[in-house]
């Protein structure tokens, strides 16, 4: 049986048979890989701890007929601090869910995405920054790598630069912000057509209104030069937190629109943030 080595981050697992697990791993060498961890559910298993989601391992895998088999695993990083904070753990699992979904589309960026995901998990585990802010930055980074980066500085219809007074709505179909004038024109078209879709293609369903504060959060989160600890989780004012939540919802809505599915882990992120 042919073997190969890989370094990977576990992004999901489910039970197989009596005592095995199928682990989904994002590897730096081969992208998303699914492999069987034999006996991983037995208490004495050498591989049990290493088959847990969010662990980084050095692996030796044997090529199987349908699924590869994990022959050896050496732990590199486990992010233990994530396991003591419910909100940060939920965000980390959200990253894992996004990786499972978008992983196949990152085939040419394996190494870059592997480093990006590992750094994002480290930041969520170690930094004091607001977990929602870190989540927003992760989402921008992922969209960048996928080639779906939203347009935030120019109106996606008339291409005029956006300003506080001219902000209209974030349009999921078109992947960016529409200015107030273009939004009003689109809404007038809609009213005349009496349908959900106007002749110009503007739809209410996929447009979300955006305020200047929310817009600034999006601009700052999209800028890689802004340090990661820009917004502290403990000191942010309630109004800032509210606008950050609104910014996150806009971007998460856009990601789900691109994915064509609802990200289940987001439900619990929202529940736990309210605790």
């Amino acid at each position: 049986m042919a073997t190969y080595s890989a370094t990977g981050i576990n992004v999901g697992s489910f039970n197989l048979g009596e005592s095995d697990k199928i682990v989904t791993i994002f590897t730096a060498e081969r992208g998303l890989v699914r492999a069987v961890a034999k006996g991983a559910r037995k208490p004495g298993s050498k591989i049990a701890g290493r088959a847990e989601p969010l662990n980084v391992n050095k692996l030796l895998l044997s090529t199987g007929r349908s699924l590869d088999i994990i022959s050896q695993a050496e732990g590199i990083e486990t992010f233990p601090k994530l396991r003591s904070d419910l909100v940060r753990l939920s965000y980390a699992l959200y990253y894992a869910e996004l990786t499972q979904h978008f992983g196949p589309g990152l085939a040419e960026e394996n190494e870059v995405y592997f480093d990006f995901l590992r750094d994002a998990l480290r930041r969520q585990a170690e930094q004091d920054a607001d977990p929602a802010w870190l989540g927003l930055r992760f989402e921008f980074g992922l969209l960048d790598l996928l080639g779906y980066r939203p347009e935030l500085t120019y109106c996606i219809i008339c291409r005029k630069p956006l300003m506080d007074a001219s902000l209209g709505a974030f349009h999921q179909d078109w992947g960016g912000i529409v200015c107030k004038v273009c939004m009003n024109n689109g809404q007038n078209d809609l009213a005349q057509s009496g349908d959900n879709h106007s002749p110009s293609g503007f739809t209410i369903r996929t447009a979300r209104e955006i305020t200047p504060l929310v817009w600034r959060h999006l601009i700052l989160a999209a800028d890689e030069k802004i340090p990661g600890n820009h917004l502290s989780g403990k000191t942010a004012k309630p109004s800032i937190k509210q606008s950050l939540t609104a910014a996150r919802r806009i971007l998460q809505g856009y990601i789900e629109h691109r994915a064509g599915k609802h990200m289940k882990s987001l439900d619990l992120v929202a529940d736990f943030e309210d605790l």
Partner: peptide, 16 residues
């Protein structure tokens, strides 16, 4: 560590 387990093969989280 589980009874009969081997310290050398235990993962970081279990050991800590």
């Amino acid at each position: 560590l589980p009874v009969g387990g081997d310290l050398e093969y235990a993962d970081d989280v279990t050991l800590s």
